[in-house]
Nucleic acid binder design. Structure first.
Lengths: 221, 221
DNA sequence: AGCAACATACATACTAGTTGGTATGCTGTC
DNA sequence: GACAGCATACCAACTAGTATGTATGTTGCT
C-alpha cells in the first residue's frame, strides 16, 4: 500500500520520513558549501522540494536544523569513513592508510573541505550547541583511531613506543590541516602530497627493530 | 575652534590615516570573531568610532574593506610572528621552536583561532579575491620556513635528509590543525600538547648521525 | 575657494520566522 | 466497514527585523 512515488527528489506527499531526510540532506549540502550562518533556508527548501511549512514543522528553527545536520548527517559521514573501516580491520596501520587513500580528490570536495571541521571552525566561538556536538564527533574520531592503535600495539602490528592518543590526535590535526590548505589552494596535488606524507608517517608506527633508536617519531609521550 | 576631544578612541578630526587604521583594526577584530560575512559593519564603525560616511569614503564596499584587512593587518601579523624571527635567526630549528612557544594560549586567542586560516576557510570557496590573498600569505609563510630550513641545511644545522618544502608544509598543516582542534575543544592544554609534539618533530630535523636510518621522519621526498 | 574628509538620514534588499489555512491519513465508534 | 473526528503534514503569502550601501549635507585643511 506504500506509495511508490517515482522520479523526482521531491518527497512523496505525506511521507514525513522522506521529507525530513530530504531537508537534512539539502541542509547539509547548503551548509557544506556556504557555512551555517550564510546557508540560505530558501535554497535548502528549493533543493529539498518542500516549503517553509514543512521545514518548521519538522524543526523548531534554523539552529535546530543545523544541530540535526551535525548529529545525523555529519556524524554518519565521519563514522562511515573512519570508525567502520577501523572497527574490523586486521592491521590498523594498513586500515588507516586505506582510509587516507580513500580521501576524495574531487574538485568539489577539495573546495568544500571537511564538513565537520568547517562547522566546528565557524560555530565553535559563537554557539555552544554546535561546539559541543562537533567536539563530540572529534572525540569519537580520535578515540576510534587511538583504540585501533592500542589494539594494534597489543597485537604486535604497532610499535610499543607509540602513544595511541598522541598519535591519533596528531593524525587528525595533520589531516585537517592539509585539507584546509588544499581548500585554500584549490589544488588537489597539495592534498595528495599531504596524504602521502601522512602515509609515510603511519609506516613509521609499525613495529621497529628494538635496537634502533626512534627519536624521530613525533608524537610520543 | 578645534574640538579637543580627548579621551575617546575616536580618531582625531581630519586624520585620514588614523581613520583608515582604526577601520582596519576594528574590522580585523570583528572579522576575527565573527568571520567576514557575519561581520557587522555597524559594530566595526562603533569600535572604530566613525560613521558610514568615513567607511565608504575610504573603502568602496565591505568586500574591499575585507581585502584590505587581509592585505595589511593579517599579512602583518603573520610576518611579525614568523618571517621576522626567522629572517635573522642563528639556528633555524631553535628559531622555529621559539616561534611555536610564542603561540598564545590565551582563552580569547584559542577561541578565535588563526585569523589567516579562518578567512581562508570561510571565503576560499566563495570569493576568488579572498582566496588569492590568503593563498599568497600561506605561500609566503611556507616559503619563509622552507628557506630557513634550506639555509640551515647548508649551514649544518638541519639534516641533509630533510626536504625543506615538504617539512615546511607539514609544519603549517599540523600547526593549523592543532589550532583548529583547540578552537573547537576550547582547551588550551590541547594546543599546548600539539605544540609540544611539533617541537619534538622539529628536534628530529637536526643533523643526525649518518649511520642511523631515518625512516621515521614523515615529510621527505 | 575648493576639495578631501567626514556625518546623517534614508533607500533597498534580503531573510528567518509567522500565520492562517488545506490536505491527508489514522483511529475509534457504531 | 464506513464514517466522524482529529492530529499530522504540509503549503503560500506575509511580516518584521536587519544588513549593506547611497544621497546629501557639513566641516575643516591647504
Amino acid at each position: 500500500m506504500k506509495k511508490a512515488h517515482a522520479k523526482t527528489n521531491r518527497p512523496a506527499a505525506r511521507d514525513p520520513v522522506r521529507t525530513r531526510e530530504a531537508l537534512l540532506n539539502a541542509a547539509f549540502a547548503e551548509i557544506h558549501r556556504s557555512g551555517f550562518r550564510s546557508a540560505d533556508v530558501d535554497a535548502i527548501l528549493r533543493v529539498a522540494g518542500v516549503t517553509k511549512g514543512a521545514l518548521y514543522h519538522h524543526f523548531e528553527n534554523k539552529e535546530a536544523l543545523g544541530y540535526a545536520v551535525v548529529d545525523v548527517v555529519v556524524a554518519d559521514i565521519m563514522r562511515q569513513k573512519w570508525q567502520v573501516p577501523l572497527r574490523d580491520a586486521e592491521n590498523p596501520i594498513n586500515a588507516l592508510i586505506a582510509v587516507l587513500k580513500g580521501t576524495s580528490l574531487e574538485k568539489h570536495d577539495i573546495e568544500c573541505g571537511c564538513p565537520l571541521n568547517n562547522i566546528a571552525q565557524e560555530m565553535s566561538p559563537l554557539d555552544e550547541g554546535f561546539r559541543r556536538r562537533t567536539a563530540k564527533l572529534f572525540r569519537e574520531w580520535q578515540g576510534a583511531i587511538a583504540k585501533t592503535l592500542r589494539e594494534g600495539r597489543a597485537h604486535g602490528d604497532v610499535d610499543q613506543g607509540v602513544d595511541p592518543d598522541q598519535s591519533s590526535t596528531f593524525l587528525i590535526a595533520a589531516y585537517e590541516g592539509y585539507i584546509s590548505l588544499a581548500k585554500n589552494s584549490q589544488n588537489g596535488a597539495d592534498l595528495k602530497a599531504g596524504l602521502d606524507a601522512m602515509v609515510r608517517y603511519l609506516d613509521t608506527l609499525r613495529v621497529q627493530p628494538t635496537d634502533r633508536l626512534q627519536a624521530s617519531r613525533p608524537p610520543r609521550s
